[in-house]
């Protein structure tokens, strides 16, 4: 793009950058002004819908409506006839190795390992880094993998897991480290006994920065005087963490944990790039993708998506209890 074109775009750039926030602020200020014209009794009934309204429209149009259509499709054949639970039966019929079961097993691995390791490391790093002066520096180093797209991440970790036959200099980092300990090189992402863990490790490396940044933001929200008071009372640092810091961070830990659980359920890109679901590494989202675009099996894909949605329900119930507890406290 040359300067002339850029200058011709400049008014649009300005309009977009100034206009978009202006429209948003004008919406909320303008509607609030209108609400004030209403009689007192109506205001609390109307106001919430004005504040949640735009969000509801977007979420409904982009996600809830497609979800409803998906639920409908999951009960239909390719020709659009109602077939009851046939699509589910095809996905869940052949326990334990047929249909979607390998993918479900792998999603359970993802759910446990990816969520716990990312959450645990994120918390550990957030708490440790909070205590050093060069916090910003180390945090941005941990954050860096977040800034790599999933496709690049998959390619890069293929480099990490590269394999050369024993006796030949290794080009992959992981096998080279094995070599230092006089172990034979092995294949990582093609061997069903380790490949799920190798892929989850790559994905976890990429997401830990996410957990760290949000948990760190929550940590900063804990009033310093609260911690000081505890220290003055002679509490040890571990006690302070357990009794003061962790309970106050709990709502955020739940948020990050829930998000990670949903990411684990939706895990797709890294698997798609690294193995495409071969070697028993399939996951539900990848299975759905293949059914949708390769097999043209809309019904099957929709059924897999509904299984994913169903898996979120326990997490939602936990969340409901959690925020009711927060409300009860205030």
């Amino acid at each position: 793009m040359d300067w002339g074109t850029f200058l011709s775009q400049l008014p649009i750039v300005v309009i977009v950058i100034v206009g978009v926030p202006a429209v948003l602020v004008a919406y909320i200020v303008g509607t609030e002004y209108l609400v004030r014209l209403l009689p007192d009794a109506f205001r609390p009934r109307v106001r919430p819908w004005i504040w949640v309204g735009p969000a509801l429209i977007f979420v409904f149009g982009f996600l809830i409506l497609p979800a409803i259509l998906t639920a409908k499709t999951s009960l239909e054949s390719g020709a659009g006839d109602f077939v009851g639970l046939q699509n589910y039966q095809r996905q869940l019929g052949d326990f334990p190795t047929g249909g979607a079961w390998i993918a479900i097993r792998n999603n359970v691995y993802w759910l446990i390992l990816y969520t716990l390791v990312a959450l645990g490391f994120g918390l550990l790093l957030a708490v440790l880094f909070d205590r050093v002066r060069y916090e910003t520096f180390v945090k941005s180093l941990i954050f860096m993998p977040m800034a790599i797209s999933a496709v690049a991440l998959g390619v890069i970790w293929k480099f990490m897991y590269w394999y050369q036959p024993p006796g030949v200099p290794q080009t992959g980092t992981v096998n080279a480290i094995l070599g230092i300990f006089h172990q034979d090189p092995r294949i990582w992402v093609q061997d069903p006994s380790v490949d799920n863990f190798a892929i989850i490790a790559a994905a976890t490396w990429g997401i830990t920065g996410f957990a760290m940044v949000i948990l760190s933001a929550a940590l900063k929200g804990i009033p310093a005087d609260l911690l000081e008071a505890a220290r003055v009372d002679g509490a040890g640092e571990i006690t302070i963490f357990r009794r003061v810091i962790f309970p106050l961070m709990m709502p955020t830990v739940v948020v990050v944990g829930t998000t990670l659980v949903i990411f684990a359920l939706k895990a797709f890109d890294v698997v798609y790039v690294m193995t495409g679901g071969n070697f028993e590494t399939d996951v539900l989202a990848n299975r759905m993708y293949k059914l949708l675009f390769f097999s043209g099996n809309q019904g099957g894909a929709a059924a897999v998506a509904m299984i994913l949605l169903a898996a979120v329900v326990p997490v939602l119930i936990f969340n409901l209890r959690q925020f009711r507890a927060v409300e009860a406290r205030r």
Partner: peptide, 9 residues
Amino acid sequence: YGGKNFMVS
């Protein structure tokens, strides 16, 4: 060369 491990990886 490298057998099955090399082939698949």
